[in-house]
Design a protein around this nucleic acid. Structure first.
Lengths: 370, 370
DNA sequence: TTGCAGTGGGAATGCGCTTTCCCGAATCAG
DNA sequence: CTGATTCGGGAAAGCGCATTCCCACTGCAA
């Protein structure tokens, strides 16, 4: 028993397919009450389910919104996905998912696939790369997006515009003030910690990471502190862990030196509080921070006693982590929602949408025993 | 500039649409080399993107696989989603996402929507409810699924069959041995802890929760331990937290009683080791366990000193939690992958797919100071 | 040379639905 | 009572593609 069609419903109701179509979907013209009832009843009894493909073909729109993320299992992305999903629900659309592992090439494929399905809009989450090697990939992605936009598609990008995107029509960006917030975080950290700073960053060229690093350095500078050293590593937990291991070794070396050498060569202008104040580690995202913390602990170091650790994102699942992680709260779900709404273009774009803001959230992990 | 069509490509290449179709998609018949090249080049220069909707209409199949989860931001589901996504990639399909918050009604809607889009298969993750109130909702969902299956759809369910589903064709279940594993966990816990047991469970009727509770009780019984008390609460972090709060009060009461009353009324057959051995708390999933642990800590209690805590699922993001959480590892991603594969019906269903197994993983959180 | 199978390509049909256009009937003003 | 409007409904033309026929042509054996 194949799914019943509109024509069958119409026949059963004794009307034309046109009329059946008009009553079963809110057309501009509304057939008479009695006829409408007949049709509805016929549809009900046949268990009629409209064929969205055919509808889409006829109307050339699909009720689909495409979502591109690096990895749906990453809490950062899944939080955004939730927001997008919610907005989709409001718009009575469905979301089409694509995980790309961050490869521009497969993002391009995803865009093409969305375009093929005639998705009404596309939301791209996940940070862009700007490395020279990615130039070509980014260009192709941009070209694909441009084409999609020219054909009437709407695209919203979280964070940064795709490098080299040219279309101005139907192209939206949800700005995330990574730089400003990182600077703020640095300022607050500088105010409570007298130790040195180290940044655990993602690979060079990863825009989100670079922004946060830049902002943090600026904040440090504004606070009169020297620039922090930057450790480049993978943008995930294990990257954080590796960097943490390296730092642990360094910290232990300093500590034992301090213990044995007593107080002969204290760093210039270091306030006198026994050994040097603990190092303050800023990882450019929470997951990396957690990895770094785990590494430190695995080496017998304690947080925040031996080192302060701060992250970025305020991932919900990580809130119960001990010691509670200092971080920058980002309304991830709201970001996803806004992206989807912007792309829907319902209201005048930036109009009713308040810009995204985050907030520095200091917790135990940076409470240096001062 | 509207997207170019196959007809346009054909015209540009100077062939018929039929031929163009044949070369641009692997048809049974392969046109001559030179013609094929001409067509491909024309397609390239026009930036032709096939219209998946039209293709789907013509072939009546869509290359879509529908995924239903309670909440995509929940790490349990996002891990499964990742597996599904991966399998989809293998099958060169895209995944269509629906978050339903667990309401059978909106699951039914989701199924209908998937059916409307002619999804080739549907994967349902997320535990079923069997409460009397849900009977009707479940029945409707089952009916919708049956219809979908009768029309040739394939559905795979993670964990339990949908209550009341009747179609035997195209209906697959990925079995998760919740009961057995919970029993195993209980046995191992009983072997290392002499204290009493308490279970923090989800609402009554939630199948996954009920299975794990039942299994745990059986394990306890097999180990000669009395059945544990079951606290019913919400199936999420805050439910765990609430239950944890209640337990904290209880634990503190016992502790102070033990301190003041010295050793006058020790429970029958309690081995003499100072105060009673700490309570062992089993939360039916990791997120709840984390919530409970947070609650205990907020009341000044320490884990595992004052109480042992164990969870279920082994959520990746929670692995760095301290003290490390004892739990049952479940290959979530693999589960998602299997579900998607089963539904694809590629290989002989259960044939090449090894059944899902988990493993009890004891960590710090249950290392009673014995 | 003729007859045959085999081959590469085109014409046409239909997938299920929306929508424009058209037409008969009913309504209203004059 | 007649002519001008509506108004409710149907006929039909696509939407973009796959696919089933069908036909012209080639190569081969007879």
């Amino acid at each position: 028993m194949a799914a019943s069609t509109l024509t069958e419903v119409a026949r059963l109701a004794g009307v034309s397919p046109a009329t059946a179509s008009r009553v079963l979907n809110g057309s501009a013209r509304t057939p008479g009450k009695d006829i409408a009832d007949r049709v509805r009843q016929a549809a009900e009894s046949l268990g009629y389910i409209p064929n969205a493909q055919a509808q889409g073909l006829a109307k050339s729109s699909s009720g689909l919104i495409g979502l591109i993320v690096h990895d749906i299992a990453d809490p950062y992305f899944s939080a955004i996905a939730r927001g997008v999903q919610e907005a989709a629900r409001e718009q009575r659309k469905m979301v089409l998912l694509a995980s790309t592992e961050g490869a521009p090439e497969s993002e391009k494929e995803a865009v093409a696939a969305f375009a093929a399905r005639r998705a009404d809009s596309i939301v791209i989450a996940g940070s862009r790369m700007s490395r020279p090697e990615d130039r070509e990939g980014n260009a192709e992605l941009a070209a694909e997006l441009d084409r999609y936009c020219r054909n009437g598609g709407q695209v919203a990008v979280v964070g940064h515009a795709v490098v080299g995107a040219g279309a101005d029509e139907g192209y939206h960006v949800v700005q995330v003030p990574n730089e400003e917030l990182a600077a703020e975080l640095a300022a607050e950290l500088a105010a409570i910690s007298s130790g040195g700073f180290v940044i655990i960053g993602g690979p060079e060229g990863l825009l989100t990471s670079d922004d946060r690093i830049r902002g943090f350095q600026q904040g440090l500078k504004a606070a009169g502190r020297p620039a922090a050293e930057v450790l480049r590593t993978a943008f995930n937990r294990s990257g954080g862990f590796d960097a943490g291991l390296a730092l642990a070794a360094r910290i232990k070396a300093v500590q034992s030196a301090g213990t044995t050498a007593a107080e002969g060569d204290s760093p210039p202008a270091a306030p006198a509080e026994g050994p040097a104040a603990p190092l303050c580690i800023f990882a450019v995202n929470d997951v990396m921070a957690i990895g770094a913390a785990a590494a430190l602990r695995s080496q017998g170091l304690r947080i925040p006693r031996d080192a302060a650790v701060a992250g970025f994102d305020d991932i919900e699942t990580l809130r119960d982590f001990r010691p509670a992680l200092s971080t920058v709260h980002l309304p991830l779900e709201e970001i996803g929602r806004q992206a989807a709404r912007r792309a829907a273009g319902k209201d005048g774009s930036a109009a009713s949408l308040t810009p995204v803001t985050g907030q520095v959230t200091l917790r135990r992990s940076t409470e240096t025993v001062a």
